[in-house]
Design a protein around this nucleic acid. Structure first.
Lengths: 358, 358
DNA sequence: GGACGCTCTTGAAACCTTTCATCCCAGGAG
DNA sequence: CTCCTGGGATGAAAGGTTTCAAGAGCGTCC
């Protein structure tokens, strides 16, 4: 008798796992509307092939059941995602959010959505996001990379996830890239300062692993060389990141130098640094531009509204994003897509921070 | 004979659709490693239960095949996503990116990733993102809503997607919210201006569908009432968005008024407006703060670095984001979670833009 | 009146992973 | 020598959608 009892028990214990709260699927909708699974799917994906009457029934059923299409299942079966991601260096930098705006514009025109991710200049986070996005099988990835030699980045395209590099020009032939000529930008900035008669010029930027920082510095050096000046005229102040706070720190260091060794002008790798530098220097009693002329980079909206309107190197931000997204869309839809390397030209915008100096 | 031929044809033509390029799945890995599907899955999800030797074999196979786990399939079966989303009003506003930073901090601590979405103050985009995220079955949604009465928003929690409203306090009991007392903030700003002796004060903000804009205005009105002033003293300049460009537009309008009717002070619904207003007024010849005192809102990093350092109402931005994310995590992990309504207190930061006026 | 064409609908198969009840096997206890 | 135990490995089933070959219903044409 004990044995019999034991066998009688496992009656209906075959429940495997508590599912999410009452999720109605296509099956439930089909049943409620009195049609087949396939028809519900057609209403969802090809509404034009189903008769108006049937469609109405199905739509009513969906509404009353609160049906929400399960994207995981859709994507698993259909194999394609309707999402595109932009991994940016720093969401706090208006330059990148402007680029993102351009990306969204182009994506929306193509009916895709954009997920923004921010690596915060941290290699591990960048890597983690790349893995995540690849696993999500997104349509494609736009990225302003920290580590441009990342093997992870290089492998993505061959495994089926198109990548477009934004604001960097990689020599790698495995993806498109859209960039602005940063070397030229650096040259523009320094040539401008040299023309104004400055002799000791600081280059404020870092860390030196970031491509943009390196290129702009190289441009600065080239301008000096072209002008026949010694390299020693360029005083490098390396920062830990491209932020306002780091700019303030650089300002502190710079203002602390004895007047006869202090540079009379500073070229910053981006506007955030320039704004921080400006703020700190002013508060420590240096006059801008009389004691220190400042040139920024990016020409973000706040550059013009700064304490002293900032001379800056302008980049076509939104255009950069839009172009990148368009290249990505082409790559994932056009079978004979060819990788391109688009380079825009920066432009110097002169404002008070360097006006009438010396 | 023709009949026999016809039957013989469909030999191996059953290919349905060209799949994505050579995607190696668990099955292929299992075969390559000489183990079963289940074992591969265990290596992925419970590495401790598989013997070191087997694990090594499987990991080698994964590496050599370039295996990338298919997140759609994982999520479909496992039922849970490791992603959390923050839908912000405007990625170009540093206030929101600072909030986002707080969100990421908390999410990372919990091992989750964050997708950022921006509604750009557009109701349709907000709706589209909410739909998308719900279909993606994300762990939860953090949102600074445009339309707080959106039925879409209200329905989400009951269907299984937890929602936390950020920077708004909804009366709705279906989700947590984290906010800063905007009415108080408005009061602080206006009281400050009244104390300085200003009589004609402008309120610059809009559109009037945005909760923050309304609350801050209500606070302004309340301060007037408390001071026994007529409401007519508050001149409302409505803007189309909370951006620098709109701020400039408001400046244009304001500077165009005859001097005897022009306000002597302006309170802006956020710092972007204030910066635009400041910039335009200065360029049109008004002195700040002598001719026009300005108070902003948010105390973003750029407020202090502005042409005239901006008096502003400070909010605990990162804390806001972190708290919101923590509430969300609690909601989705703690079975007896109770909805909360956290309210922080804003703080007035006085700077030159209102200093020593009148 | 039979064949054909057309529009709409159907339902089984496939997508890739995770889960869990079983099974296998070696070693220890009786 | 058998029985048990427990660490590991197994593989069928399940999860919700899309796809597509095939079927149903109905009007038209010769």
């Amino acid at each position: 008798m004990s044995v019999d009892d034991a066998e009688a028990v496992p009656e209906r214990t075959r429940r495997r796992r508590a599912p999410k709260p009452h999720a109605a699927g296509v099956k439930a909708v089909a049943a409620a509307a009195g049609v087949s699974l396939g028809t519900v799917s057609n209403v969802l994906n090809r509404p034009e092939v189903v008769s108006p009457l049937t469609r109405a029934k199905v739509e009513a059923a969906m509404a009353s059941l609160g049906f929400v299409r399960n994207e995981s299942a859709r994507q698993l079966r259909a194999g394609s995602s309707r999402i595109l991601a932009y991994v940016m260096l720093d969401a706090g930098n208006p330059f990148f959010t402007d680029v993102a705006k351009g990306v969204e514009e182009a994506a929306q025109a193509a009916g895709l959505s954009v997920f923004l991710c921010t690596s915060s200049e941290d290699v591990d986070r960048e890597a983690a996001y790349l893995d995540l996005l690849e696993q999500q099988r997104v349509q494609g990835i736009l990225i302003t990379p920290i580590d441009q030699n990342s093997s992870r980045l290089r492998k993505l395209p061959s495994r089926g996830t198109p990548v477009v590099v934004v604001d960097r020009a990689l020599d790698d032939a495995s993806h498109c890239s859209v960039a602005v000529n940063d070397v030229l930008g650096g040259e523009l900035a320094i040539s401008h300062l040299l023309e104004l008669g400055h002799e000791r010029i600081a280059y404020v930027g870092g860390p030196n692993t970031i491509g943009q920082v390196i290129d702009r510095r190289d441009g600065a050096r080239r301008a000096l060389r072209t002008a026949g000046r010694p390299m020693a005229d360029l005083i490098e102040l390396t920062t830990g990141a491209l932020t306002v706070a780091e700019g303030r720190g650089a300002g502190q260091r710079l203002a602390g130098l004895p007047a006869d060794r202090r540079p009379t002008a500073a070229f910053c790798a981006n506007d955030l640094l320039a704004l921080g530098l400006l703020q700190q220097c002013v508060s420590l009693g240096l006059r801008v531009p009389e004691d220190l002329a400042i040139v920024g980079y990016d020409d973000i909206e706040f550059a013009e509204a700064a304490a002293v309107p900032l001379t800056s190197v302008r980049q076509p931000r939104q255009l950069l994003g839009r172009t990148a997204a368009e290249l990505l869309l082409d790559e994932s839809s056009n079978p004979d897509h060819e990788h391109q390397r688009v380079t825009f030209t920066p432009e110097l915008v002169v404002r008070t921070s360097t006006r009438g100096t010396l």
